[in-house]
Design a protein around this nucleic acid. Structure first.
Lengths: 209, 209
DNA sequence: TCGTTTACAGACGTTCATGTATGTTAGGCG
DNA sequence: CGCCTAACATACATGAACGTCTGTAAACGA
């Protein structure tokens, strides 16, 4: 019953897919390898062949999902003449659309939000921290350029504006994912984003449409 | 070695205190009753005497910490002539101060942020959801009254403003607790809150100090 | 075509945490 | 003052999950 290379790759994908569903349903720490094996229609032996342990499986899921930061710090942000606000709004909206229409991505992000990062998964949290820091820096310096052109409302500093944007995005997604996706993420998310950005813009905020 | 009532109550508190430290360090799911017992200087027998199991211990911790919502939906908010913005800002700032100066509260909230709510702890998450909903409603209706007086900026609706406020608070606290408390929570938190609220206020935002 | 290795299934041994059951001692109460 | 029970400590039984080891049949390379 030796499988061909293609078949092996297929079962590997089955295992990852099953892990995603099981982790989502029972939580990472409560899920057992046996659970994942059953859901994938294989035995634990197969899983241990493809992955070292549960941590490795989790890492695989973590690697497989694009985070909002990757989109939001688009290269365009670095160009000096870009409309930073528009770029950020577009990128965020695009990412929200992608999340809203991809159930798999929803499950994986939910898993990442719910899981316990103490112990074995601590490095993941640390890495996430660095990604966050980096994203914050990029956003902040872009907003600093905006401010130097006098296009940032007097209410805000580059730093606080960057924080507000990031927290808004995170709060939005967290609430949507953890509280049962009870509102229209793409619609309301985009709307709220737009409102915040309007507030960040200078005096022309009130005459914007 | 039968203890007096007072002594028993003391060991009970020791256990809770130890659980807090151990849960914080190893995470709820990775922590064992033996760990907690050692940290408390007792045996597992003592813990099982005072608590049914680890879930009960966790619930005890959950009950013991005041959440920001309780302060933010102060009764003052319901009074019709109150300055809603000022009330919210003061309540939030007060809560941030309390958190920043109380390490125990920090640890407990960190535990609650990190832990895996699938399975046994799911009810906690649900309850949290209802508290959140309730808080959102209260805040929203208060902001609706503000809007009816024309004191809410044209950029915002009551609903989006309430969301923005809540997400800002959550993002602020989450980042501070999960990323190693690397900034001044009370100071920067209050500052950002103030900026957002200034943006929520009407046209007088720019002439505010 | 034949040996080797891959891709698993299944069995095994071990660890480890949990919950309970029992033992023990002293406090509180009549 | 003596009994009962509170407040634990200790010992025990159980089971679940893990990781490994062996078996095996077929794919793949030479």
């Amino acid at each position: 019953m030796r499988r061909t290379k293609a078949e092996a790759e297929a079962t590997r994908r089955q295992i990852i897919c099953a892990a995603e569903r099981v982790f989502f349903k029972k939580g990472v720490s409560n899920a057992t390898m046996e659970d994942v094996a059953k859901a994938a229609g294989v035995t634990r032996g197969a899983i241990y062949w493809h992955f070292a342990n549960k941590t490795a499986l989790f890492m695989e899921l973590y690697k497989s999902v694009p985070l909002p930061q990757e989109d939001m710090v688009a290269r365009e942000l670095e160009s000096d003449d870009a409309d930073v606000f528009a770029v950020v709004e577009r990128a965020a909206a695009k990412w929200l659309d992608a999340l809203a229409s991809d159930e798999q991505r929803q499950r994986i992000l939910t898993i990442l939000l719910r899981c316990d990062y103490s112990g074995e998964f601590a490095p993941v949290l640390e890495k996430q921290q660095h990604v966050d820091d980096d994203h914050k820096c990029k956003l902040e310096s872009a907003l600093a350029r905006v401010a130097s052109k006098g296009q940032l409302s007097a209410c805000w500093t580059p730093r606080s504006a960057a924080s507000a944007l990031r927290w808004m995005m995170k709060g939005l997604c967290s609430e949507w994912l953890l509280h049962g996706r009870r509102f229209d993420l793409a619609g309301e998310g985009r709307e709220n984003l737009r409102r915040l950005i309007e507030s960040l813009r200078g005096a022309d905020a009130t005459r914007a449409r």
